[in-house]
């Protein structure tokens, strides 16, 4: 045992003999007998505790510095692992693949196919109210893109399906004075907004389905916004109102510091691969 030699050396030549060590477990002596009279006073010795604290701090700082490549590697690995993981345990790991549930409201009412309504108001010629059945009856568009959250997680190749927002805007007759679109949600708290130009993109949907299933409540069902090229906080859950306005009004997280123009990889100080 190298440690024994080390110990003996430290205690000096007077203590070359160590009666307790090595054979001790088998000889059945009581613990009191084995107290080494040569042991140092407890309060002496090397300040290893302080070194451990400083070492942990240094490792933490190193982790922050090395985070971008480490995170990319781990995401790739865990993303692949979660596809083959029937237990769902990888979902609980940081960036372990899959979606995270975020709600800013205390509780979110549930809307069914019969109680759900989507209103289109503001600077339009023909304000409208849609039921879920009316939205389903309109031409559906299916997009398969990665979902990227501003907090880091990414879910690859996620199908979304719904009505192009541009079709709903056209049907309402947008007035020339309108410059932006504001979205409100039936959780009573969340809001989002896009410029009119962004809202007219072909990869912005009023989504009714996700992963080829009807949107459930946790994912923002029955209807949510889906803004494919932007960070996922733009894709407001529980969408209930579309309002045309003359300027962009920052949404819930945007009033708390997030970018309004939230292009994936080109905003919020992040450098993720674009999703569209």
């Amino acid at each position: 045992m190298t440690t024994e030699h080390g110990d003996a050396a430290e205690r000096g030549p007077a203590h070359g003999r160590d009666p307790a060590e090595g054979h001790a477990p088998a000889d059945g002596r009581s613990p009191a007998d084995s107290r080494d009279p040569a042991a140092q006073p407890e309060a002496d010795g090397t300040p290893v505790g302080r070194r451990l604290v400083l070492g942990t701090l240094a490792l933490g700082a190193l982790g922050v510095a090395a985070a971008p490549p480490l995170q990319r590697g781990l995401e790739r690995f865990l993303g692949a692992a979660s596809d083959k993981d029937p237990t769902g345990l990888t979902q609980l790991l940081p960036n372990g693949g899959g979606f995270r549930y975020y709600s800013v409201a205390a509780s979110v009412p549930r809307k069914s196919a019969t109680s759900y309504r989507l209103t289109v108001t503001g600077l339009v010629d023909r304000p409208a109210t849609y039921t879920l059945a009316q939205l389903r009856a309109r031409p559906q568009t299916r997009l398969v893109r990665d979902v990227q959250c501003v907090t880091g997680w990414r879910v690859p190749d996620t199908p979304f399906e719904g009505v192009r927002l541009s079709r709903i805007l056209d049907a309402a007759g947008v007035r020339p004075t309108a410059r932006a679109v504001r979205f409100t949600c039936f959780d009573g708290t969340y809001s989002e907004s896009l410029t009119l130009e962004q809202a007219r993109r072909s990869d912005v949907l009023v989504a009714l389905r996700m992963q080829d299933k009807d949107l459930n409540h946790a994912h923002g069902g029955p209807v949510r916004l889906y803004v494919a090229p932007m960070y996922f906080y733009k894709s407001a859950k529980w969408l209930s109102g579309i309002e045309l306005t003359d300027k962009v009004e920052p949404g819930y997280w945007e009033r708390r510091g997030y970018d309004v123009d939230a292009w994936v990889g080109r905003s919020n100080g992040r450098s993720d691969d674009p999703t569209a």
Partner: peptide, 18 residues
Amino acid sequence: ADLRLLNRYGAHDRRWLS
């Protein structure tokens, strides 16, 4: 005093760990 005890590692601590 206890912080000092927690900080200082003697030969017996190495034996405990091994």
